[in-house]
């Protein structure tokens, strides 16, 4: 098949760094920032069994972005940000509302909500294609490959693309928040009952997390689209949790993984000439599979060697959404 180019290890590693190296560099930096920010927020989602809430928000921001475009026609405006974050939070509220007030289960409420909002977004984009400068490919797999061609901003004598700058600021903000509220985030995730009895308002931590999640998703949206972002939320920390039992270590590891995904993804994408964001997730998924098989503590091989097939639960595929 002619589709897969011949694999040559030298050119595999060198190709991205020849003539278009500047573009490659920014793709890697952006990929790292997106992955790291998503991974940071995502680890708490995973711990709270709310991984699919990320799915819901990432789809639901679409109508917010579309409406903001219609109102302002500018991509970098604060309005878009507000619209999209608002749509994400609205989705969270709507899911809670539906399952609190009716007998629809949280998983179904989640499914109904985000598909509806996403459909509305797609319809808006299709109807007002001339005004909304956002094509559906971008929604599906982002345009991280073009990050270098975005408007840039001169910083310390360097032309930094604005999306990269924005993502860096977001990541920095997240880190600050994490350092300030680490213990609250941990205890409310581990044992919300204890947290409440200790006087830590679990609800507010929950809303704070949802807000940060929406912000991160909105800023990642252009680069990786609505669906790949889910992988970036979940992959780093889940892979990390196969390798370590300490949350702090997992968080640090997910930052390292983020860099790895970004690099490996770029090389893959250059070799195969495919979507860089998609390739980053594929790389991440492969890394996850490696960890799953080889992890010294919890890997499949270890389990086989110990002769215990860690069959934990025979059956039962109840999707938990964290709204129970």
């Amino acid at each position: 098949m002619k589709m897969i180019p011949p694999f040559d290890i030298v050119s595999f590693f060198r190709a991205p760094w020849t003539e278009a190296w500047e573009s490659s560099l920014w793709i890697v930096i952006m990929g790292f920032l997106v992955n790291a920010a998503c991974g940071l927020v995502g680890s708490f989602l995973v711990l709270r069994r709310m991984a699919l809430v990320g799915d819901a928000i990432s789809h639901s921001v679409l109508p917010g972005i579309a409406v903001a475009f219609l109102l302002s026609t500018s991509r970098s405006s604060g309005l878009m940000m507000v619209g999209a974050v608002g749509a994400g939070l609205f989705a969270v509220w709507l899911i809670e509302f539906i399952h609190r007030n009716t007998r629809v289960k949280p998983d179904a409420a989640l499914g109904v909500t985000f598909t509806t909002l996403f459909s509305i977004g797609v319809i808006l984009i299709a109807l007002y294609a001339d005004q909304v400068d956002l094509d559906l490919e971008c929604v599906l797999y982002g345009e991280i490959g073009f990050v270098y061609f975005a408007e840039s901003f001169a910083l310390l004598g360097m032309e930094v693309p604005i999306p990269v700058l924005r993502m860096a600021v977001t990541l920095f903000g997240l880190l600050v928040l994490l350092l300030l509220f680490y213990k609250e985030a941990v205890v409310t995730s581990f044992d919300p009952v204890l947290a409440t009895s200790l006087g830590i308002p679990a609800r507010w931590v929950h809303y704070g997390l949802m807000l940060s999640l929406s912000v991160v998703i909105v800023f990642s949206f252009e680069s990786v689209g609505a669906i790949l972002v889910i992988a970036m939320l979940i992959l780093p920390s889940v892979t990390g949790s196969l390798l370590s039992d300490r949350l702090a270590h997992i968080l640090i590891m997910s930052a390292v993984f983020s860099a790895l995904y970004a690099l490996a993804g770029l090389h893959l994408a250059t070799w195969l000439n495919c979507s860089p964001a998609g390739a980053m997730v594929v790389a991440g998924f492969l890394l996850f599979c490696l960890a799953w098989i080889l992890s010294p503590r919890r890997g499949l091989l270890t389990q086989l060697r110990k002769g215990r097939r860690g069959l934990r639960i025979e059956h039962g595929c109840t999707g938990s959404t964290g709204f129970e």
């Binding site: 995973v46 991984a51 992988a231 939320l233 979940i234 889940v238 996850f288 860690g310 999707g319 964290g322």
Partner: peptide, 14 residues
Amino acid sequence: HTTTHIKEDSAMGL
């Protein structure tokens, strides 16, 4: 889901 500690929602997301 059955061979790791990973919860089902994360497994589905992955």
